[in-house]
């Protein structure tokens, strides 16, 4: 009986939960599978870590600050708010201690840039993934 309730409950969940779209990290297809912690990823997005563990340069792409994909990505994957990242970049840009990432204006442009730029990392919605880029979301 318990089992039956469980099955019904799961079926009910499946039925009523809208198909959720997650934000996932994508990298250039030639980048090997590195083990990256959440803080490693945060450090890459803060533009502090600028090399992959194999020594090759990282090229970070982000979507405009007020884009909902950027907001969701910051909150759910990085566990940060967009203004915090912007604050870190601004502090680096205007004190000479670092640089800003390359900004793109659409998901299509993000996917294109990440697939064409060696060392690239960025993010997209999981339903917009194709074979031109490599997802690394599973590591988190």
């Amino acid at each position: 009986m318990d089992k039956l309730i469980k099955i019904i409950f799961i079926a009910w969940l499946q039925f009523f939960t809208p198909t959720s779209v997650a934000q996932i990290l994508i990298v250039h297809p030639d980048i090997p599978n590195f083990e990256l912690s959440r803080n490693n990823i945060r450090s890459i997005f803060a533009m502090r870590t600028q090399q992959w563990p194999d020594g090759n340069p990282i090229h970070l792409f982000v979507i405009d600050d007020n884009n909902s994909l950027h907001t969701s990505f910051c909150k759910h994957v990085l566990g940060m708010f967009p203004y915090q990242l912007r604050g870190i970049w601004d502090r680096q840009i205007f004190s000479g201690t670092g640089i800003a990432p390359t900004s793109v204006s659409s998901v299509q442009e993000m996917r294109e840039q990440v697939s064409n730029t060696p060392g690239a990392i960025g993010y997209i919605e999981s339903d917009q993934l194709n074979s031109s880029v490599k997802p690394i979301g599973e590591l988190l």
Binding site: S37, N39, N40, R48, T49, Q50, Q51, P53, G55, S95, G96, T97, G98
Partner: peptide, 16 residues
């Protein structure tokens, strides 16, 4: 205001 050279000496998996 500033004029500097930024030299990255060591970059490890969890530090720089």
């Amino acid at each position: 205001d500033y004029a500097l050279a930024d030299i990255n000496l060591v970059q490890g998996d969890n530090f720089q």
